[in-house]
Design a protein around this nucleic acid. Sequence first.
DNA 1: CAGCAAAGTAGACAGTCGTATACTTCAAAA
DNA 2: TTTTGAAGTATACGACTGTCTACTTTGCTG
Lengths: 212, 212
Amino acid sequence: MNALTGTGGKLKLIQAALRLITETRSLTSLGLRELAREAGLNPNTFYRHFKNLDEFGLQVLGYIAEDMKAGVRELRQMADSSEQASHDTVAFVYRYFLSNPAATTVAVRELHGPSPALRRALESQLEASAREMAEDIIERQLVSAVPPETVHEISRMTIRYILFRAMDYVEKPAQRETIQTETEHFINRQFRGAMLDHLSQTDVERLALKHT
Amino acid sequence: MNALTGTGGKLKLIQAALRLITETRSLTSLGLRELAREAGLNPNTFYRHFKNLDEFGLQVLGYIAEDMKAGVRELRQMADSSEQASHDTVAFVYRYFLSNPAATTVAVRELHGPSPALRRALESQLEASAREMAEDIIERQLVSAVPPETVHEISRMTIRYILFRAMDYVEKPAQRETIQTETEHFINRQFRGAMLDHLSQTDVERLALKHT
DNA sequence: CAGCAAAGTAGACAGTCGTATACTTCAAAA
DNA sequence: TTTTGAAGTATACGACTGTCTACTTTGCTG
């Protein structure tokens, strides 16, 4: 039975984990009995579904990944100019994080967390998202003046940047607007700067001054 | 007695914590007895120095902060062009992280960790570092074409970016060169992009194409 | 040297934890 | 309807945890 399709204890345990993590816990620090208690199950039921806590962690990550992929796929057909695209995409992505606070917290917390296995799993997932984003940008020629390799590099940076800020976005409503516009700045400056990679610093300064 | 000046149990406990965290632990997950064991002390000695584990965490953070400040202060008088400065500074900062792996891991791990108190402490510390960096850049007029407020914004982003990559830098020797050059790209593109904030996207594209 | 406070130790308390074994419930296949 | 395997429960084990009280050692000060 898949983690997503089950109606029984397995799903209950995973959801209990997400509930606990949202407060002040980390996936790695969750206990088997604690999970069962939160899920309203006998501690030993855990063993019917998972070999140990490590496997549990990986399955929770898988559960979240499935969720995220579905969300991200929606934003494929959006605006057509680069700046327009970044604005809409950023708004969309943060809205997604906002509606999945537990998943967001887990991802941020475990990406640098104590478990190497979870770190690796999350990293390869981020890598995949970044690749998707880069290929989308290249395909639609949103920034044709930037070489593909650079687009990939910037995509990787952007994905990470957004993820880290997502936690603040979720937790601090007052800062949401700021975070969103700063993220747009981040992306636009990154791509604009990359367009000028082949120029010297003085050239760029001259250009900037000339067009004021 | 300050955490830094003690020769006895207090310092031993803090150093034990740093030793444990470097492997696969997080500051928040450390146990009192575990610390004492690693430090070669009786568990109850802990209570002679700290009220509880939360206070201990904060003191460890303070210990690390003291360390970092001393390191960062060294890089004040370096190169004079912006690009030169970013190159040397990035190299220096990563070298610092490399020689303090435990402090690096703690900072990265707790910045998004489960304890709100530690998160807050680390954030205000990063904020201070970012402010210092921005004021330094403004004072020395390294990027005079960018307004002060923007310099502050970019500094905040840069500090965070470097910190996150620092963990990979420490743990994955094979990627060190890549991380260093990508960080330089990040900074240069950010500032170059900011110099063109007042232009439209088509203007920038035209400029980029004209100078190839 | 005496006194005293800080640092460190010893032992015990009630909890929690992960795990193992054995038992019951239940639903679907034979 | 009987069989069978999965899901869930009950109980128990040893190990570890944070905390408490009481005791001993250490080093400094008067």
